[in-house]
Amino acid sequence: MEYVRSDADAQGSGESALTVKILVAGGFGVGKTTLVSAVSEIRPLRTEEALTEKSIGIDDTSAVMNKTTTTVAMDFGRITLPNGLVLLVFGTPGQDRFWFMWDELAKGALGSVILVDTRRLADCFQSVDYFERRGLPFIIAVNRFDGAGTHSPDQVRDALDLSPDIPVIDCDVRNKEDAKRVLITLVEHIMRTMSGRQAVG
């Protein structure tokens, strides 16, 4: 009950500090942590969750069906913005067996960057499907690894069968300015998506 009261308080005080959440998704080893660390100090986060029946009912835990416990190591960065805003950028766990964690990460998130390595394009299919299904705004950022393929953003868009309004941009996640540009592109896309939704509703 205490919690419910706190919740109501939080909604009542509009000027309270706000945390906003952005996700960085993509296949294992695609550069998610590098992107987050380019713009913020990286922090490790560990979960050792006892999977309850409740979570088994909600999440697709088919891959962990015979496990009752699981450990997920993730990381996130905190960016403190003016006016007390706190932006948390989460790297999503790259392996399929951590899907149950995605729902929690996606809840209340503004949107997601999906990092892509064109040599392993298929690695991002699940992320694209997931965010499309959830209706969460996302952009595609193609990480230009040394010696990576030279596919143009348009080729990537075609290969992923994306709608034309979803930004597909190139980047080098090791470069801070690139990382900033990726995040800004995402937030601008979120703004466009939201104003579109308001126009419809």
């Binding site: 706000l18 003016p82 932006l87 209340g108 937030v187």
Partner: peptide
């Protein structure tokens, strides 16, 4: 009652365009 919990505002009411602009400005200033 030793802590207060401020839950993030529900997505439907949040974020305002103003907040998103602040996020963009903040990232740009990094």
């Amino acid at each position: 009652s030793l802590i207060l919990v401020r839950r993030p505002a529900p997505v439907a009411q949040f974020p305002s365009e103003r907040v998103l602009k602040e996020v963009i400005d903040g990232i740009r200033a990094l």
